[in-house]
């Protein structure tokens, strides 16, 4: 049975006009991402992988082409609609963790659910479940500054998962982590992917991430160079 497509990127172009010479970051990229994929977008610096991730995440708009998430062409949404769309459908994991420094680990995980106006009991249960899933049930009340880089990134994954998004976008999630933290984080993500069929899309240089991915999309000069499935 064919799995459901959660992201359809169709003939997407992105040109930046912030410099004297326009920079063509993406030139006609088309890819489909299915439910439950564990996909890495790879390529050298400046190849356009972060641009593609930003476009899929609704953080930026394509110059041309369409990006359909679920049933919505996100290129047609207004800025405020995009904020709501991201809140409901997309989980982000950033390279620098980007937790809210003044909130505890628990409050960080709970944050997006609060924005979604979920009831307290539901929030508490989901936070406890996710903190346990990322192995930090005993660090709920610690602020980010009291956690290691690996722990912060795990909290960031829990935060991304909290609102039950359609998929998780992770931009270089292991770039600032040591080997052990990277292995732990990838184990945890792979488990969530296997057990709960959560879709993960990574942008990465990290061979350790690439080795764990089941699909590798290679981008170079703004074009898809290779798209291969790993057995």
């Amino acid at each position: 049975m064919e799995r459901k497509k959660v992201i359809i990127v169709k003939d997407v172009y992105k040109t930046y006009h912030e410099t004297k010479v326009p920079v063509k970051a993406l030139r006609g990229v088309s890819i489909d991402i299915h439910q439950g994929e564990f996909t890495a977008i790879v390529g050298p610096s400046g190849s356009g992988k972060t641009t593609l991730l930003n476009l899929i995440g609704g953080l930026d708009r394509p110059t041309k082409g369409s990006i359909v998430v679920g049933d919505t062409d996100i290129a047609t949404l207004s800025d405020n609609q995009l904020i709501d769309f991201r809140k409901e459908h997309i989980g982000f994991v950033f390279q620098s963790y980007n937790l809210i420094p003044v909130l505890t680990a628990k409050e960080n995980v709970e944050f997006v659910m609060l924005l979604q106006k979920q009831p307290k009991a539901k929030r508490d249960a989901r936070t406890a479940e996710l903190m346990a899933a990322v192995g930090l049930a005993d660090r709920m009340d610690n602020r980010p500054s009291e956690l290691s880089g690996g722990q912060q990134q795990r909290v960031a994954v829990a935060r991304a998962l909290a609102p039950k998004p359609t998929f998780i976008l992770a931009d270089e999630p292991t770039a600032n982590l040591d080997s052990k933290s990277t292995a732990d984080l990838l184990d945890m993500m792979a488990k969530l992917n296997a057990d709960e069929h959560i879709t993960f899309v990574f942008s990465t240089h990290d061979q350790r991430v690439i080795d764990r991915a089941r699909r590798i999309i290679t981008i170079e000069d703004g074009k898809v160079l290779k798209d291969e499935w790993v057995q």
Binding site: I83, R86, K87, V112, L115, P163
Partner: peptide
């Protein structure tokens, strides 16, 4: 940067 992150994860402009 922090405001960008908050917007990215779904905090609306009004809030």
């Amino acid at each position: 940067y922090e405001f960008g992150i908050l917007k990215a994860i779904g905090m609306g402009t009004v809030k």
